[in-house]
Amino acid sequence: MGCAMTQSFGWVPEGVDVTVPDASRVYDYALGGVHNFKVDREFWDRAERVMPSAGLIARANRAFLGRAVRWLVDAGITQFLDIGSGIPTLGNVHEVAQDADPAARVMYVDIDPIAVQQSRSLLSGNPGAAVIEGDLRRPAQILYHPEVLELLDFSEPVAVLTVAVLHFIPDSAGPASILSKIGDALVSGSYLVVSHVGPDSTPAGRQAQQQAVKLYENTPTPVILRDAEEVAALLGPAFELVDPGVVSATDWHPDPEEAEDPPQPAALVVLARKR
């Protein structure tokens, strides 16, 4: 990191790398949030130029998260483990869950210590929500973390959310194995929520998408596209798909108010139940 760049962000403490776009800050900006740096905004603006639908995909994905959480609360779930929660600004899981059931408990997990600290300050005073620093690639360290075990009761069903995070896990890191280990820790009746970037449905869309993927290759978190079949395969035998299975975010129990929104086939989502 250049000294001049550090000085240009006078209020940024030394050591925070603001010269590289960060996935969670980019996503925050994509949703209209303000917890981001110039490098994140410039990165997203470039991504939107090569793939104009990127913003709508992000919003569709986030809207799905809100609907999925409400669906889960309606199904009786009161415990949520949100892995890869990012910057907790717009559409927080705990806001949605606790609005539907004030007794709902939410544990956020993110790999970025700054995002964790921001979450911590946001959640102060909320006994039903907490955050820890953790890496999805090391699920045991999350599942057996003392704070996680204190907030969540794994003898009861838990909904594990891996929303817009598995497409940052390459095959070499064993995403199916990670989900399998998570599944081992859950009792029957628990749920797994996945959203994942998939290939666009049109050649032009896919071409634009490839350009955006190339942009991500220059960040610490390159994106891996997986189609519906591949996403379903990640879940393994421990989970059974809940209707409608692996679908576009806009097709997953759509809000009647949003019926006219354009479909987003590249935003794949699925909700699965632990057998």
């Binding site: 940024v12 403490p13 303000v34 917890h35 921001q118 911590r120 300050s121």
Partner: peptide, 21 residues
């Protein structure tokens, strides 16, 4: 206000993070 508040929030969070470090 929201933007300045966010900046302050990030600043505080990062300072807290580095204090923990």
């Amino acid at each position: 206000s929201a933007a300045v508040g966010a900046a302050e929030d990030m600043n505080r969070s990062e300072k807290l993070h580095w204090r923990r470090v």
